[in-house]
């Protein structure tokens, strides 16, 4: 299992969060933590999530799969940033 931290911008549309969470469960992605908060722009929300991937699955693949969800505006891999913030 590999651990990754992602930050997504979602459109504030009904069902947007559900679609992301279902994508995680149907692709076998383990969610360690998840938080949703309003983004600076009122029509967007920011979703921060820490996930664990099964062996053989890549974060690049997951980012692309998240990217094709219509209500996802952007996906950023913050795994490295988080390590810096923690001083690790």
């Amino acid at each position: 299992m590999t651990r990754h931290s992602l930050s997504l911008l979602l459109r504030n549309e009904p069902g947007a969060l559900a679609r992301i969470v279902v994508l995680f469960s149907s692709r076998g992605v383990d969610v360690e933590s998840l938080s949703l908060a309003p983004a600076e722009r009122g029509d967007l929300s920011r979703l921060d999530v820490v996930v664990e991937l099964q062996p053989g699955r890549t974060i690049v693949q997951l980012i692309k799969q998240l990217g094709r969800v219509v209500d996802v505006k952007s996906v950023v891999d913050r795994t490295h940033d988080e390590a810096i913030e923690l001083g690790a």
Binding site: G15, A18, V22, L23, S26, V70, D71
Partner: peptide, 14 residues
């Protein structure tokens, strides 16, 4: 039906 079909639709609207 929107939730039921989440993993099998490209997108959905209500």
């Amino acid at each position: 039906i929107r939730s039921i079909t989440l993993p099998i639709t490209k997108h959905s609207f209500q």
